[in-house]
């Protein structure tokens, strides 16, 4: 079937099978490989993208479900080559190591700050239930999200 959706502010018209996942549409058809898939039980959150502004696991959505929606991926955050404040904060705070969970972490963090502009450490940790990282021990991710939130508040 043919679906239309907006991906990173661009209108996309694409032919999909009914059983195609949104993550597969992004990665395999649109070659937006920043969205990663790291589990098959919808828990790790590496595939997190924004669907109509809210974070969602793109491995747990049919591409067809996203028809008519606006999807933002990690590739869509930086504007004109300048890192998004949350990306910049992850860089400054050393909030990433191998980088595999990172896109999902950043997208999840962007959603958190949208609903809670000044999250506490505990609120950040609770929010990250749906994102698994094996490298960082989360500490610098938490610091990065606090810093990113502060930067966004003052932006």
């Amino acid at each position: 079937m043919e679906i239309k959706l907006t991906v990173n502010a661009q209108l996309v018209t694409v032919e999909v099978e009914a059983n195609l996942l949104l993550s597969a549409l992004l990665r395999d058809r649109l070659r937006l490989t920043g969205t990663h898939v790291a589990c098959d039980t919808s828990q790790c959150g590496a595939c997190t993208v924004l669907v109509d502004g809210a974070s969602a696991k793109s491995c747990t959505l049919l591409a067809a479900e996203a028809a008519g929606s606006s999807v933002v991926t990690i590739e869509g955050l930086a504007a004109d080559g300048a890192l998004h404040p949350m990306q910049q904060a992850f860089h400054e705070q050393h909030g990433l190591q191998c980088g595999f969970c990172t896109p999902g972490m950043v997208m999840s963090a962007v959603d958190l700050v949208a609903v809670n502009p000044d999250p506490s450490e505990a609120e950040i940790r609770a929010w990250l239930k749906g994102n698994i990282c094996r490298c960082t021990g989360y500490q610098n991710i938490v610091k990065a999200i606090r810093a990113g939130a502060a930067a966004l508040r003052s932006a």
Partner: peptide, 9 residues
């Protein structure tokens, strides 16, 4: 329930 991404869907 679940996590934020699950609650969003």
């Amino acid at each position: 329930i679940g996590d934020p991404q699950v609650r969003n869907r």
